[in-house]
Amino acid sequence: MRELSLNILDIAQNSVSAEAKTVTITVTAKDNLLTIRIDDDGKGMPKDFLEKVTDPFTTTRTTRRVGMGLALFKQEAEKCGGKFTIDSTPDVGTTVEASFKIDHIDRLPMGDLAETITTLVVAAPQIDYVLRYNVEDRGFGFDTRQIKRLLEGLPIESPEIVAYIREMLTENIKEVNGGISL
């Protein structure tokens, strides 16, 4: 992966496969630590599967017995002085959290997080997505449930709406970054 936002997209896709109703992505950058957390209310996984889930040869897919997503995300965090945790309860949901030293030379850039969110909205519009984005003491929130309420049944994945969501997120993320490059 070339951007952390691609890892976020990849991990959130696991939530889509786990039939989550809501996926919450929390990005916090404070005191030289970037923390990315993805919570879902999907079907979760049993303890024995959870224990081996970051092994690249563990997967739920059936085309091949290789699953790289979580293993890659864990490696990205640990190679730049961060930590990786995953917690899951069957029928309740899963939480994945990874942290990164912001000034570590090997840290991947955040990249286009707005595009990650719009990709999720287009790819699985039935799911609700929440983004909480905080840098130091600044922040903003985004929730597709609010947009769906405004739309009153019109599809959120309509290209016009998706284009606006992307524009809005890009601008708000830039403003919250306040000149810091994540």
Binding site: D10, R61, M68, E115, V122
Partner: peptide, 15 residues
């Protein structure tokens, strides 16, 4: 849009 697709550049393609 699996890990392989995303790593190869599927996100900008979809958009």
């Amino acid at each position: 849009m699996a890990t392989c697709g995303i790593a190869a550049g599927a996100r900008p393609v979809l958009n």
